[in-house]
Design a protein around this nucleic acid. Structure first.
Lengths: 250, 250
DNA sequence: CGGGTTTTTGCATGAATTTGCATACTTTTG
DNA sequence: CAAAAGTATGCAAATTCATGCAAAAACCCG
């Protein structure tokens, strides 16, 4: 059997069934597993497949949603992401909302972090799934078209049954007077439930959103444990948000 | 024996079997392997064949993966998508699984269709959300990394509480003997529950997957109402799958 | 036909590729 | 954390390959 012939059969198997085990291939092609491994490595180097422990997978599944439009204030959001990730510890149960800032966080999570993530956003779920060592659980429900997060009674209900260590929400409006605000009633209900469920709440927001107010109130600032922006904690914009040392600035 | 004559025979052999071994050719044509090698090199230079270690292979057979990250057998899947969409009617409740074929369906749904879609795949959910007039409900759960669909007890449980009009599943293996099969236990449980929940079940699969068997059984062919491939319904490959006019071929 | 030229062929040699095994190492799993 | 499964690495045997060369065959043209 020619090597290239094996390669074709392997590619076919993967394209047909999305994944293969070295074990099965070695039986199917009647060669040693070493040879199969060498084949898989070659195909992976050519970028045709994705090598994983014990076999290989189709690349097709991974990240079809990368062609996103440009993210506004991307650099600031990356800074926020790094700060936020410093809160993540091993074996934590972490609840993530949706939005572009949260997406940056999901992207930048270190590959060696072991933790379980819950999210109401399909995009965030898919991004999280790229990291080997984390478990991803999606809280399903009606997909709100504008925000692309799951909403509705079932989401609220599921949230009432969990108790995450930490919850990260990106807000639409934040001000000392009105607290956290948003413009979509359904989304507000979900975020309220998220805050209610979690032991600690972190709000991530670029400085530009500070002192803006939307139509519907989510919560007071006092309910927030961490407030994370791209600015240094001692920044003057932030000082007015602090009452009795809460929230903690990062 | 003239060189050109040998070349013709070699090309015929390759077109016939898609590959040749230098060894076999040397016996067949009663010349030394060196000569065969020289022949193969010449043919390869003319771009007629693909020279590989130990022999040569057909060039045309060199696989339907055009670029990288491309969907395998995309055209076939688009044909399947069109056929499948013809089953969708106004106000239906339709349950979709995941996978590249289902993704093509999700993309091609007409914008004027009013219906509610349920899915266990974040990718499918996001794609569906692009269409104005449909409601999208994600069934959440633990995100299985390899298949990118939600699995686990919560998914099974949620599925037991709904009764969709139609369920579309893409299978991993399908054969008359073993029915629908897959290689991932968690995924199998979900698909079983999907079939159980739904009034009608449609299976979509490219013809290439027919008569392949994976390790875990999902269901018998008799549980399927519609079987949709890129081939015309009268195709001979399909006839053996029909017992008592079920499933209906599209 | 025939002699010179070109092309083709087979062989020898050493180099390169491929494969399976042994070993030590890493990852996964219960 | 220990057993099991999977992986990387080096190595040796077998096969295949490139190259140079000389003999054989084919070709050309008068």
């Amino acid at each position: 059997m020619l090597k290239e012939e094996r390669h074709k059969i392997i590619l076919r198997e993967i394209n047909l069934h999305n994944k293969v085990l070295s074990n099965d291939l070695s039986e199917l092609l009647v060669v040693s597993e070493d040879t199969i491994r060498r084949d898989l490595n070659e195909l992976a180097e050519q970028g045709l497949i994705l090598k994983v422990h014990g076999g290989a997978m189709s690349k097709t599944f991974h990240y079809p949603f990368n062609g996103q439009n440009q993210v506004y204030a991307l650099e600031a959001k990356k800074v926020i992401a790094d700060k936020t990730i410093s809160l993540f510890k091993k074996d934590m149960l972490i609840l993530l909302e949706g939005g572009t800032t949260i997406m940056e966080i999901a992207k930048k999570i270190p590959d060696d972090l072991q933790a379980t993530f819950l999210t109401v956003s399909p995009q965030v779920a898919l991004t999280l799934a790229e990291h080997e060592n984390i478990d991803v659980i999606t809280i399903g429900g009606r997909l709100a078209k504008n925000a692309n997060i799951h909403t509705g009674a079932s989401v609220i209900n599921e949230l009432s049954n969990i108790r995450p260590d930490l919850c990260i929400i990106g807000t639409n409006g934040i001000s000392v007077q009105s607290g956290l605000t948003d413009s979509d009633w359904e989304v507000v209900q979900v975020i309220k439930a998220m805050i209610q469920a979690s032991r600690k709440v972190a709000v991530v927001s670029i400085a530009e959103k500070f002192n803006t107010v939307q139509k519907i109130k989510i919560s007071d600032i006092t309910a927030i444990d961490y407030l994370i922006t791209e600015l240094p904690p001692e920044s003057s914009v932030l000082s007015s948000y602090i009452k009795k040392e809460k929230p903690l600035l990062l």
